[in-house]
């Protein structure tokens, strides 16, 4: 890992420590698995109030490449989540900023915030979960909501 990566990740680690309260207000919380390995982080994302995902809490896993922040982290859901842009099997997220549109000015925290925004603002035209994407695309809000609520209650209720 380069000096620049280490320096940057240490800053993010300190910032993550500062904003520490496990309150329900905190929608995204992340930390390195160990202080000796800043390339592997874990945490969770809570659904925002007033969205389909309200009340759920999903654990996430973040693998940071050695070339971070020039290249994006790989973020996936550990807790199963029913969402058009998340692969049901492996939890991988389809989000442009985690691929070619990544910017070195983003942080792990802001990348997770972007995923939080994606939860309530899906892109059903580039689906990783076709079942829920079809419901969203066809405008069947009721069916989409009941499917999301079912899986949230089953796997991610707090």
């Amino acid at each position: 890992m380069s000096l620049a990566s280490t320096r940057r990740l240490l800053k993010e680690f300190r910032a993550a420590q500062k904003s520490s309260s496990d309150s329900e207000e905190e929608l995204v919380r992340i930390r390195p698995v160990s202080e000796n390995d800043l390339l592997h982080w874990v945490g969770y994302i809570r659904g925002s109030k007033g969205t389909l995902y309200e009340g759920g809490r999903w654990n996430i896993d973040i693998q940071v490449p050695k070339t971070y922040p020039l290249h994006p982290p790989e973020i996936k859901f550990i807790t199963p989540i029913c969402h058009p842009n998340v692969n049901w099997k492996d939890g991988l997220v389809c989000l442009d900023i985690l691929k070619g549109q990544w910017t070195a000015a983003w942080t792990l925290q802001s990348a997770c915030m972007a995923i939080l925004v994606l939860l309530s603002d899906p892109e059903p035209n580039s689906p990783l979960n076709v079942d829920i994407a079809n419901l969203v695309r066809s405008g069947d809000e009721e069916a989409a909501a009941s499917l999301v609520h079912y899986f949230t209650a089953k796997y991610a209720s707090t």
Binding site: A4, R7, R8, K11, E12, A15, P69, A104, A105, W106, T107, S110
Partner: peptide, 13 residues
């Protein structure tokens, strides 16, 4: 609107 943690290392370099 950039976050300082996101840019400061590059500016310092």
């Amino acid at each position: 609107g950039y976050n300082e943690n996101g840019y400061i290392d590059f500016v310092e370099e």
